[in-house]
Computed example of a mutant assay.
Amino acid sequence: MLRLSRTSKIVLGVVVAIVLAFMYIPLALVVLNSFNSARIVSWPVSGFSLEWWGKAFTSEPVRAALLNSVLVASGATVIAVILGTLVAFALQRYSFFGQRAVNLLVVLPIALPGIVTGVALNNTYNQLLEPIGIQVGFYGMIIAHGTFCIVMVFNNVLARLRRMNPSIEEASQDLGASPWQTFRLVTLPQFRSALIAGAILAFALSFDEVYVTIFTAPPGVDTLPLWIMNQMARPNEANVVNVVATVVIVASFLPVWISQRLGKEVDERD
């Protein structure tokens, strides 16, 4: 076990404290300003008020943007779960020509800058599909998000499949189980936690995507990140934005906690 000197521990502790402060003090300011009685963001907070919370929860644009974000993220997650799992099984269980190329093509969208993906999809929708009468509309935005969310599920499931013992499935089939029974009772329980963790990450990635959404959202349709970005240009609405951001911050703890728990369960099982 590596042992650090007292000086090293102090230096490491100071560095960690600075990094954590740099990360979380701005978030704390967002939360505090959501209760600020002033009409504009200010520091120190001039007084305590729930006025902005009331306006945020009764705002129709906020509710519409939140609903759009949930629908898009849910649709993208479904696409990612289905396609990401299928591709992971194909690359893990079979050998075929172009296997490495397929692996690269699946991972590539997450490596590309979001603005490049957004421009490419926008050109495809507007210059290729619309002239032949195909209007993708809201579904086009879901498909666009699904293209980079697949990687989250694919990586998690593929990593788990590589750690599975194939002899367990072979034993199930030798004992007379059908392929579906083997998958449902033997295979799925072994990679289910990785699948759920990947789905959660895919949902979170889609929920806060901005660049791809800007280029693929239909006219007049805002997701929550787009609504926040548009409202930041209005100083009088900044504290309402802080309320929405505070809710998102609190809600973000749940998927992170679930993902950590699922990852811990996988490690303990192994």
Rank of each mutant, 00 (worst) to 15 (best):
105 L>A: 12
73 A>W: 02
88 A>P: 06
106 V>D: 05
74 S>E: 07
84 G>M: 07
92 Q>M: 09
95 S>K: 11
104 L>V: 14
101 A>L: 13
88 A>F: 03
93 R>H: 12
93 R>D: 12
96 F>C: 08
100 R>L: 13
103 N>E: 14
80 A>C: 06
94 Y>V: 10
89 F>Q: 14
89 F>V: 15
80 A>S: 15
88 A>Q: 01
80 A>E: 02
90 A>T: 04
96 F>D: 07
84 G>C: 08
79 I>V: 12
99 Q>K: 13
71 L>K: 13
100 R>Q: 14
76 A>Y: 03
103 N>P: 02
92 Q>A: 11
76 A>Q: 03
76 A>L: 05
72 V>E: 02
97 F>W: 09
76 A>C: 02
86 L>R: 05
105 L>I: 12
73 A>R: 02
82 I>A: 06
104 L>N: 14
105 L>T: 08
97 F>L: 11
94 Y>F: 15
99 Q>C: 01
85 T>S: 13
99 Q>I: 09
102 V>Q: 00
73 A>I: 00
79 I>K: 00
93 R>L: 10
98 G>T: 05
73 A>C: 05
86 L>W: 11
100 R>P: 07
71 L>S: 01
98 G>P: 09
82 I>K: 00
86 L>A: 14
71 L>T: 03
88 A>T: 05
89 F>P: 12
89 F>D: 11
88 A>L: 04
81 V>I: 15
105 L>C: 09
81 V>G: 01
102 V>S: 04
90 A>C: 04
106 V>G: 00
74 S>F: 14
